[in-house]
Write a protein that binds this DNA or RNA. Structure first.
Lengths: 140, 140
DNA sequence: ATAGGACCTCTAGCTGCTATAGGTTCAAGG
DNA sequence: CCTTGAACCTATAGCAGCTAGAGGTCCTAT
């Protein structure tokens, strides 16, 4: 059915903030909706679906630029091979894994620093020493 | 010894880019250095140490605001307890762990999507379906 | 009729840099 | 001493992805 939605309703349904919806419109991620007599934005099912798509892709960490590409492919939806979608997801997966590896190294370093801390005074703080000392690899 | 450094030399020694050093000066993270007759910045050992401190803290992901606090505590270096340093590091560790957990959920979702992909055509792409379908928890 | 919440536009701000333009200085080779 | 070209200078704008604020209008329920 052609249910009609205010921007606030759309925000509630998608978990997207009102200002973010307007921002997406501004940068062309969402088509301009209709307007009520008084100038309020009026959305329909298509906007809802598109915004949900965007939100989900964003939750997986795809940058907006990539989301645009995914939307384009989704709208095409013909019999072309979906290899490009696959590639985008694989790229994102590699990024996520790389980031996890980085963060794990940080985690180890921070754990080590915290363990070393004698809980004494500023002038003999081992954590501050670690920042001050001669160049050392932060990781390992 | 009172060795003198150009901004480029400082950049090389710290692994920090020249423009970033100027940026740090601009936002008050680094004190204004002396100048040569022609107006070039001239740094000394103190700048080098301070910048190294900043870099190391940044590598661990502390935001600049926190680095300011750490620098202040490092410069105090009296017999006050170092609990605050400890707290900052512990906070950062919690953030890192939370981020790792988030990313692992993303990793699992992306792996699942990629595994589902039948490598066929756009109109029956499972990955796109996942973005399009009804609301589902992305994780688990 | 009116209150107050939801909506409107516009501009500026956030983090942490990075990029560009258009010019000046410095150090090494001839 | 002079030239060349790398390194330096300032100033402004841009990136991602929103978020916040000011100052005003609309809509709906009582």
């Amino acid at each position: 059915m052609g249910k009609i939605l205010s921007i606030g309703a759309l925000a509630t349904l998608t978990g997207c903030k009102v200002v973010t919806i307007r921002y997406y419109e501004q940068i062309g991620m969402l088509p301009e909706p209709g307007r009520s007599a008084g100038g309020h934005r009026v959305y329909d099912r298509h906007h809802l679906e598109r915004l949900r798509f965007i939100r989900r892709a964003r939750e997986l960490g795809f940058p907006l630029k990539t989301v645009r590409g995914l939307l384009a492919l989704s709208e095409r939806a013909d019999d072309a091979p979906c290899a490009e979608v696959d590639r985008m997801a694989a790229t994102r997966l590699r990024e996520v894994r790389a980031k996890i590896a980085d963060l794990r190294a940080l985690e180890a370093t921070l754990e080590r620093l915290l363990k070393q801390c004698g809980h004494t005074t500023l002038d003999e703080c081992r954590i501050l020493d670690a920042f001050r000392g001669e160049p050392v690899d932060a990781g390992v």
